[in-house]
């Protein structure tokens, strides 16, 4: 029995990666859930919004790098983030003005809006390929590690090392700041409260003189910001590839639905539930178990419940279980 080493191995391969991935999914799900709460449709273009935002961030990053501007030990992309958010927000507001507003005024059914979002998804996807291509792009610079496995071993004298990548730390810190700001905005500001009011009861919000166009615009801006941040953090942590971002739609929707569509707090919880389940189900537990059981019982196989290629199956299974047994999500969402 070697609980300490087992814990470190667990932290290194499950907890830390799960935390970072969970934060990324949560930020993505927050954007999707806000759109659902205010505009009342599932935005299938959200994954591609994340990709487009990241593309903008990469372009600005390259620009900064060409000018010799860096951000010290932090990735230059963080410096580029505000610019990328502005560009993405402008783009998304443009799509609202040109595309969605028409259907909103018609009071179109949610399914029609979903199909419309498919069209927007195609355009964003194409545009993104047009701008930056389909290849894999690594744009992380700055320090690589907060702590390396070797340092950790030297420090603690344990056999197992705990490596924390700089991008993982940045993800978690950024996510905490962003979520804090978002909740402050929703709970304390007049505009934020009007968004919650609109999401809660649209007719009454109109009777109270809340301007729907303004609420919708602010929502798009926030969603674009969240999508860009989520996309950049994911890209820094792993790498950027437009198609992967499209596929993130599934865990993001799973997270939003698990937490209760339209409920921001739920989206965050959902993000971590989905991320940790995915990591835990696809992790080979052999290493951790070897430390925990007597040598004679050490497992032969990898003790992996499912191959990593089936990570979508995890999001999906959680989604189906929640939809069948708790249709409004763990936290109450709008879905009656």
């Amino acid at each position: 029995m070697d609980i300490l080493n087992a814990l470190v191995a667990f932290a290194n391969f499950v907890f830390v990666p799960g935390l970072a991935y969970g934060a990324q999914i949560a930020l993505g799900a927050l954007g999707a859930t806000l759109i659902y709460g205010i505009l009342r449709f599932s935005n299938f273009a959200h994954g591609d919004t994340m990709a487009l935002g990241t593309t903008f961030a990469i372009l600005v990053t390259w620009g900064f790098q060409a000018l010799g501007i860096t951000f010290g030990f932090l990735p230059t992309a963080l410096l580029a983030l505000p610019f990328a958010i502005i560009m993405t927000a402008a783009f998304v507001l443009g799509t609202d003005r040109v595309v969605y507003r028409f259907y909103r005024r018609q009071k179109a059914a949610p399914t029609i809006l979903v199909i419309v979002s498919l069209g927007v998804m195609f355009i964003m996807n194409g545009l993104n390929r047009f701008i930056i291509g389909v290849g894999e792009i690594n744009f992380a610079d700055g320090a690589r590690f907060v702590i390396t496995a070797g340092d950790f071993r030297a420090m603690t004298g344990l056999t197992e090392g705990l490596a924390i990548k700089a991008t993982q730390a940045i993800t978690v810190v950024t996510a905490v700041i962003v979520v804090g700001l978002l909740f402050w905005f929703l709970q304390k500001t007049r505009t934020g409260k009007s968004m919650r009011a609109f999401s809660d009861n649209e007719d009454l919000a109109l009777l109270s003189g809340i301007n729907p166009d303004r609420v919708v615009q602010v929502t798009w801006i926030i969603a674009a910001g969240l999508a860009t941040i989520a996309g950049v953090l994911y890209g820094l942590d792993k790498s950027f590839k437009a198609f992967t971002y499209f596929q993130l739609l599934l865990p993001i929707f799973a997270a939003a639905v698990v937490g209760g569509l339209g409920n921001p707090l739920g989206a965050i919880a959902g993000g971590f539930i989905v991320a940790f389940s995915e990591v835990m189900v696809t992790y080979a537990w052999k290493k951790v178990l070897t430390y925990l059981v007597p040598e004679s019982m050490a497992p032969d196989g990898l003790v992996q419940l499912m191959s990593t290629d089936y990570k979508f199956a995890v999001s999906f299974t959680i989604l189906i279980i929640v939809l069948l047994f708790l249709p409004t999500g763990i936290f109450k969402g709008k879905s009656a």
Binding site: F44, V114, L250, D309, Y310, A313, F316, I320, L323
Partner: peptide, 27 residues
Amino acid sequence: TALGLRSDYLAIATLGIAEIIIAVMKN
């Protein structure tokens, strides 16, 4: 399992199933 769901949930569920089918065939 999924047909009782609301239309946009059905959409998300079927999107996931398709990915799983492809994952199975790939792996």
